[in-house]
Design a protein around this nucleic acid. Structure first.
Lengths: 136, 136
DNA sequence: CCATAGTTTAGAATTAGTCTAAGTTCATCC
DNA sequence: GGATGAACTTAGACTAATTCTAAACTATGG
């Protein structure tokens, strides 16, 4: 009998490595990259490899436990917030902030009418200057 | 107004290579990648190099003659449309379509209020299924 | 002409992410 | 209580997109 780790609900295949990756993401306010997650996870599991971090991230995305954010700039970032939401990016310091626009459903309909697409999701990106950078 | 004008005011450094890259982008309905632009440009200028395509794209972006579209998936795409606009991406065939949402200005204000950012621009991405893929 | 600043070129380097093949884990069946 | 086999992990090779580097080229101005 194992001393710990008894998971049987939706998280049947939550291995030590996957759990470590999930904990890193859940423990952070910001939106770490795969590389940052790798470094943090290695503090708990020193032998974890880069490939496992990527494999775990794919698994966690598929099971809906984390959310991937891709902007063109550099690496994907990972978000513990899995509900639909939007992002603001600071043009000065690069900070990435989550927010939600309640009119998203209407927006999606409007965008679908314009583009003639059958809508699945919408995402809005605001670029500007964050409160901290504004002060200086 | 004609299809193109040879004004020299803002385009002082429009070399043969840069012009070829610009013409490729302007001649296409779709949104080519750097690699596609490189291949097309080489038909006009057989010795043009990949680095020059990237250098030219940077120059053309900076002078506002083309627009770069970055999604996480693969390479940047380049757009002859330089006015603010939004994008729809087909989840099945990957097609990328431009459209414009007239309520963008209000949206930007709403997003700015939510995020507390000083707004500079907004961009909306719709994901769904394009009209062609819907038919099948 | 000659200097020189800017541009182009080919290829090396970098970065993010995926693939592969071998090794590990672990539940379960007999 | 060991054999089996599927799923997972690992290290490192690999790929794709983009940037960097250093040499060669190309106007232009004096």
């Amino acid at each position: 009998m194992g001393p710990e780790t008894q998971n049987r609900t939706t998280e049947e295949k939550l291995t030590r490595q996957r759990e470590a990756v999930l904990q890193v993401i859940r423990s952070r306010e910001d939106h770490p990259t795969a590389s940052e997650i790798f470094q943090a996870a290695r503090l708990q599991l020193p032998t974890i490899s880069y490939a496992t971090v990527y494999n775990s991230l794919r698994f966690l995305k598929e099971t809906g436990l984390v959310h991937e954010i891709k902007f063109g700039d550099g690496a994907s970032r990972y978000d513990r917030e899995t509900e639909r939401h939007d992002h603001a990016i600071c043009n000065e310091c690069g900070k990435l902030v989550d927010f939600d626009l309640p009119q998203a459903a209407e927006l999606m309909q409007a965008a679908a009418r314009k583009s003639k697409f059958k809508p699945a999701s919408v995402h809005l990106t605001l670029r500007g200057v964050c409160p901290e950078c504004r002060k200086t």
